[in-house]
Amino acid sequence: MTPRELRAFCLEFNAATEEFPFGPETSVFKVLGKLFALSALDARPLTVNLKCEPEIAVRLREEYEEIVPGWHMNKRHWNTVTVDGRLPDRVVRELIEDSYDLVVAGLPKAERLRLDRP
């Protein structure tokens, strides 16, 4: 997955936006103001921070060396995923979608319904 593909995939979700609160080098992807992905798209290797259920986060870290506790994030709830081709794109996409879904699940019901994701 290229940085362009990562960015495009993150922006495909309902109400997803890209912001730069930490400077122009760090893309922060949000849904209705809540962070679901964070990446320095020009960095090598390319990495992305993604929210994850705590139990699943631990399992993923054990299964994939490309997944580690979230850098500069709450390590219980966030993973940093290295996107360098070793991890299948399908897995990266699933992790991004899971992060988005977790964030949406934490939104008030009225906002979830606006997103068609009860």
Rank of each mutant, 00 (worst) to 15 (best):
L102V: 07
D98H: 11
D98Y: 11
P108K: 05
L115E: 03
V83E: 04
A110G: 05
D84R: 08
G85Q: 06
D84Q: 09
R90F: 04
G106W: 04
D101G: 00
A110S: 15
V104L: 02
L87K: 05
I96E: 06
P108C: 03
L102G: 11
V103W: 00
E97C: 13
E111T: 09
P108W: 03
L102A: 03
L102T: 05
V104Y: 03
I96K: 04
D84V: 04
V91C: 07
L113M: 10
S99A: 12
R86V: 02
L107T: 05
I96H: 07
D89T: 13
L107E: 02
A110N: 01
R112S: 11
V104C: 02
G85M: 04
I96C: 12
D98K: 07
E97L: 15
L102N: 11
D116M: 06
D98N: 13
P88W: 01
G106F: 03
E97Y: 10
P88G: 12
V83H: 04
K109L: 10
E94A: 14
L102P: 08
A105P: 12
E94S: 13
R90M: 12
L95H: 07
L102H: 05
D98C: 09
D98V: 09
R93F: 09
D98G: 13
L95N: 06
A105C: 10
E94N: 14
R90H: 13
V91S: 07
L87T: 02
V103C: 02
L115Y: 07
S99L: 06
G106E: 06
R93D: 10
